[in-house]
């Protein structure tokens, strides 16, 4: 699976304003609403479900990266977005580091395989330190978009 299969281009944020875990999740979910990827009436339910998942254990997987996610019946295919926080946010990460780079995923309840393949793609690409660093320092959403496209075209993603 490639980034372009689940990251909606007009939802990417290169400088989120939120300074809390719930704040950044809400800001990212709102960008999915704004782009018509999820319905406005589902926003609260999705934010709550993602926060409930975070309560089970932070999705801050290290290297300043977090993958907040949930399953939700309102989506028929995996939708996701990417955001960068310039200042970093305390996400109770597994390595204790603040998180700057976020991949938010909302997947249909009956498609666990798609969710796994998205996580696989994100984690494989992020093993590349320079990719990680370039994403975090991107100035505009379009720069993030280009980096994701480059990863898609050079990767061996299926």
């Amino acid at each position: 699976m490639k980034f372009s299969d689940f990251v909606a281009t007009d939802t990417i944020r290169s400088d989120v304003q939120a300074d809390s875990k719930e704040g950044v999740i809400r800001e990212m979910a709102q960008s999915l609403v704004d782009a018509g990827k999820i319905a406005a009436c589902d926003l609260e339910g999705i934010v709550k479900a993602i926060m409930k998942r975070e309560d089970l254990g932070s999705t801050g997987i290290g290297r300043g990266v977090a993958v907040p996610h949930t399953k939700h019946p309102s989506v028929s295919r995996l939708v996701g977005t990417v955001a960068v926080s310039k200042g970093g946010i305390d996400f109770q990460s597994l390595d204790g580091e603040p998180v700057q780079l976020f991949f938010l995923l909302v997947s249909p309840p009956d498609r666990p395989g798609d969710h796994l393949r998205a996580l696989e793609n994100i984690s494989r690409q992020l093993r590349d330190d320079s990719f990680c660093r370039l994403l975090k320092s991107a100035k505009e959403p379009i720069d993030i978009q280009h980096l994701l496209e480059e990863a898609d075209s050079h990767g061996v993603a299926s």
Binding site: G62, G113, L116, L119, E120, S123, R127
Partner: peptide, 13 residues
């Protein structure tokens, strides 16, 4: 010992 590496296995049920 690495979550990132474990996730790259994409091991389904």
């Amino acid at each position: 010992k690495s979550i990132l590496e474990l996730l790259t296995l994409a091991a389904e049920s």
